[in-house]
Structure formats: C-alpha cells, structure tokens
Nucleic acid binder design. Sequence first.
DNA 1: CCCTGATTCGC
DNA 2: GCGAATCAGG
Length: 225
Amino acid sequence: MSWTDERIATLKKMWESGSTASQIADELGGVSRNAVIGKAHRLGLKSRPSPVKANEKPKGKAKAKAPAKPVAKKPAPKPVAATPATKPASAPPAQAAAGPVNQSQPIPNKIPDLPKIVSIGPGGFQRQGPGDQQAPIPPAPPRRLVPAKPDPSIADKTSLLDLSDKVCRWPMGHPGEPDFHFCGESVNPGFPYCVEHCGRAYQAQLPRGARRPPPPLPFGGPRVR
DNA sequence: CCCTGATTCGC
DNA sequence: GCGAATCAGG
C-alpha cells in the first residue's frame, strides 16, 4: 500500500482527533501500526500523549474463559465491571488541526487552550487543563449504528474533501465509517464551525457551581466494532 | 503480556 | 520515504 493523499488525509485527521496508531492502521488497512506512526512523524505530526492512558480497546477477539475444572466450582458471578470508561484522550490544540481559520476575538474570553476552560475538540475529546481530571464521560449518546450503507447515504453529505473555510468542519460519525461526514453548515464567521457547533467547541467559563454537565461528543465514543 | 508512541536503521 | 525492529512507558 502506498500513501495516497486520501490515506494521508485520513491519517492526519484521525491522528489529530486522538485516534491511536493502531486504530488508524486498522482503519486504513494494509499498513502496520508502526507504519502509521512512522508516517505521522515524517509528516511532521506532533507526538501526542505518548504515555497513553490506560484504555480499553475491544479487539476482534472475544475471550472466553473456560474454567474446565473437574470440580464444578461456583461460577463466581463477576461483578459488572463498572467501567464503561469511554476513552477520554486528551486532545491537544485541536482547533488548529481543523483548519487555517483563525478565530479572531468575537468571543469575549479567550476560549481555547486556556487552562480551566473545558472545551470539546473536533474529535469529541474533551480538552483538559493540566490540573483537572475528568472521568465522567460515559454518556452513550444516540449512536446510530449504520448497518451497511455504502454510499448513497453520504452522497449529499460533506465529505473530507468538501471541507473549506466556509463550512462547518464538525465531524459526524466515525472517520472511515460509511456515513462519516462533516456538518457542512455555514461557518460562524471566523470559526471553523457553524454557530451550533461553536457552542460545543467553545464553552465560556461558567460561574462557579453552574457547570455544564454533559459535553456532547460528536463521535459516538471509541470505535465500536 | 497487553497496550501505547518514539526511535532507529536497513532497505 | 518506508516500515520492521527495537526501545521505553503504562
């Protein structure tokens, strides 16, 4: 396999969205995790949290425990693992990734990148300030599982190649999935997203105690297969 | 041992 | 430029 523009674009997009090299490699197909990492570096893509957080990644293999002991022991009901732990990968200055669009200062506060300010990157990953840790992001939002719609569904959707400075780049769905596309609405002038998604991407610092609870995530969470 | 990304180095 | 091998961290 060779690195076509499209494959590179996908690589960049996913890399910047916080996907792991493995996920990207799996997505692209025909390349190894190492290849992805190597390419990413060659492309000048910056390193991301190398000491990756402990995450769960359902691989295709399902593990079946077979305690084939002659003496039938108690099935030992396993307590439900109380970790729907979505993968909260921290996303670096993600809006830069989305495009060359500079946000001027239509917004009173400098929103992105300031510590203490919580915002959601294009990948649906919550940015975190250096100090704060946020686990509670298990909301499994309406995830529309598309059976196998190859193309027609996205015929009129905004694809990666349709992105411009004038349309909202907010991702809808998972990269690589048949219906993955971008919002495509007219952008909020000066921003890479439309007004609605600007509201998601940039959140003003709220008065103490009045925190916005549910940061919606554009991606349905980690890839589910 | 599993995973992760980083780096090296022969091709 | 590419990516397997290797390294290092969790």
